[in-house]
Nucleic acid binder design. Structure first.
Lengths: 282, 282
DNA sequence: AGACCTTACGGCCGGCGTAACAATA
DNA sequence: TATTGTTACGCCGGCCGTAAGGTCT
């Protein structure tokens, strides 16, 4: 019976040109390779090498065998990779979200409800999320709007409202409320990882320059030390309250008030029954 | 390292449903299978089976692994088959011929010129022969006409002439010569394995009925005991002369006089140099 | 002399079978 | 009780490494 370790050694020989070098690369002895190659020839029943007294080369048979051996090795590693991936997928709930706060909260619910499962989560734009749900990249996604698709199960998860976080020194800091247009044109300090909020606010305030901060630490430092306005939401005030010297001014525009929906495929409805019932803390 | 014998046992288990049956089919013990399956799971690093106390089944991981395992086994046996076929082909000369006599003679020349090679030969129609030469099914073919193709090397091999073999009792037995049309309509005893001669004579004598004989022995018996006319050629008179009570009457039609050509690919010209020089005995 | 392949020899790992056990129908 | 899978134990084949030998550059 041909075995994979033999094909592996055949490939190593072909890749290194000599038995000696191949042996060194594989951390085995030359005689081992000599023996294995002989055994291979025996099992094929045909010569695979052309041998002069101190040189070995693959002959035509050997080259053909080699090409097959490579395919078999590839297929074997594919098998390992894919089976492991399938197993991993079956123990993992993948969540895609349009925004950070509902994602964090859903992950918390998820890990309480399914403590034996691994949970992976990421933020993407809405089209990618829907596509990902269809393609089984996500079992569960969070959208800021109700999708219309009969294959989906949809449940309301909670609300989030956007505010301007204005330093006390800002001229509009004592306003009862403001619209995006009131602030349009002003420079804003903005944290990068805010999902769909970025596109939305950027559209509403086209003349403003957003000073994007990739690092959470840098962002909070700037908020504390700068007089530039920034955004905040109500749901984040518990975990990450705005500094005392900033006032939160509600934004009147309708799109600043968002309802999140948990969406999963109908086939997974019973599996995620409890998760779909969970609600955001506000 | 995953090995092929493990995949083989996995497949046997899947095909037989239980370890016990699989073990019996493979002529090994059950504990061996238990161990190998455990080892497979260990090497995959994921469970492949769902186990109740006395029943084992493949789970999703196992089913995926199984499908890959089948592919790998198939590829492995393909490898063996194809490498062996290549080796065999490399020391076999395959000859295709349009007729028996030049085939026999060419095979004789061949085995003298290349005593270390195996020689295979068969008769086919002209189109099949040419196609087979192009496809490397044959290294060498014999045609009754000169082919026009620049990739071929062509050498004249010899001539063969067709005769009517008429019993002494036949009314035309003493003719100096005859045309096909002279005999058209008469029943003929014909040996099956005569290659292109069959199509040709059948066309020339559309009103005759050919009593086809598949067995050489039956044919000669009938020739000896029957008064029905038959065919013969000059080149076969040495090895298998017509019986004394039959006269050989030459056929006048041009197509009863054939020149054979040895044809091989130009790339093989030097390899078959001596074979191409050989001539038929007449 | 150095690089390469081959052969010979002895150790040991690991796959195998036998036997005994546990659980199910 | 018959069938199935698991565990324990000891055998032994075969794979491996070391050592030595032969050939070529």
């Amino acid at each position: 019976m041909i075995e994979i370790y033999q094909l592996e050694q055949l490939i190593a020989f072909a890749d290194n040109g000599t038995l000696s070098e191949a042996a060194e690369k594989m951390h085995i002895s030359q005689p081992t390779l000599t023996r294995t190659m002989k055994k291979l020839e025996e099992e094929f029943g045909v010569p695979l090498f052309s041998r002069t007294k101190n040189k070995m080369d693959l002959n035509e048979n050997g080259l053909l065998a080699l090409s097959h051996a490579r395919k078999i090795m590839e297929q074997t590693s594919d098998m390992l990779r894919l089976v492991r991936a399938l197993d991993r997928a079956s123990h993992t709930i993948s969540i895609g979200s349009c925004a950070p706060e509902p994602m964090v909260q859903l992950v918390q619910h998820c890990s309480k409800l399914y403590p034996e499962m691994a949970i992976s989560s990421e933020m993407k734009d809405l089209d990618y999320l829907k596509q990902g749900l269809d393609d089984d990249i996500y079992q569960c996604i969070i959208l800021p709007e109700k999708p219309y698709d009969n294959n989906y199960t949809v449940e309301e998860f909670g609300h989030e409202n956007l505010y301007f976080a204005l330093p006390k020194s800002h001229p509009k800091t004592n306003s009862q409320n403001l619209s995006f247009s009131d602030m349009n044109g002003e420079n804003m300090i903005v944290f990068s990882a805010i999902g769909f909020w970025y596109e939305m606010t950027k559209n509403q305030m086209p003349d403003s320059r957003f000073l994007m901060q990739n690092e959470r630490y840098d962002f909070t430092e700037l908020i504390n030390s700068s007089i530039l306005p920034s955004f905040a939401t109500d749901t984040t005030q518990i975990s990450a309250p705005a500094p005392a010297d900033r006032n939160l001014v509600p934004i009147t525009d309708e799109c600043a008030h968002v309802t999140y929906y948990i969406v999963c495929k109908k086939k997974d409805r019973s599996k995620f029954k409890n998760l779909l019932r969970s609600k955001m803390n506000t």
